[in-house]
Design a protein around this nucleic acid. Sequence first.
DNA 1: TATATATGTAAGCATTTGGTTACGCAAGTT
DNA 2: AACTTGCGTAACCAAATGCTTACATATATA
Lengths: 113, 113
Amino acid sequence: MSTEARRDVFQAIADPTRRQIINLIVKESMNLNAIAENFNISRPAVSQHIKILTECGIVSIRQEGRERFCEPKLAALKEVSNWVDQYRQFWNDRFDSLDNYLTKIQSDNNLKK
Amino acid sequence: MSTEARRDVFQAIADPTRRQIINLIVKESMNLNAIAENFNISRPAVSQHIKILTECGIVSIRQEGRERFCEPKLAALKEVSNWVDQYRQFWNDRFDSLDNYLTKIQSDNNLKK
DNA sequence: TATATATGTAAGCATTTGGTTACGCAAGTT
DNA sequence: AACTTGCGTAACCAAATGCTTACATATATA
């Protein structure tokens, strides 16, 4: 994790631990120690994951006394949703079952030219 | 990219170059050199990206003489689609506009307990 | 057959990533 | 005031990532 970098939602969700963190706090807002209890990694490691999630807008922090509660801001996942949605047709159409839909798409493209 | 590792769809799409490759070949099946022409990185670098995409099932190769055409198998993105879909409600519901839907979810959870 | 083309792969390298331990500090508690 | 709790961050480290160049191999083509 180290210092910093350009944070990106796709990169943020690439890590399985971070996906698990999202899945945890979506059920219930949790403070950092509570989150860390669910993993075998150290508390600072979790803290760094949270930092990444915060930096790319997937998580927001609500301070409450000395505790910091993590809340998901899942609208940040819209970017991923939009990206993947543009390809949805390619596995939903009737050619899917024939396992040759790609060839079909290919020939469609050729027709357009 | 290096040698090998446990390939994962989420990790595969984390790289912007790989997302661009997907976007290229979905329009038209292309061989490796044709793909590489679209990037400023070397041909072997593209080859390694293709390898990763192949290993996690997003791309398949159709050999044709000495050329190898890359075709997308976008059903592999289903995993991403399913993952992100489970959170879709959290940015589609009416609380979204109030920007406090998370608080709502939180209180819902509390009620259930 | 000799050459050109299309590609894979190994080796090397700088950077990033994900983890650790050690420490510091603010906010509660005694 | 002294102690405990919750957390951030720095320093360090091993492994992974993304790239390069160099080379090998298979398939056309002249």
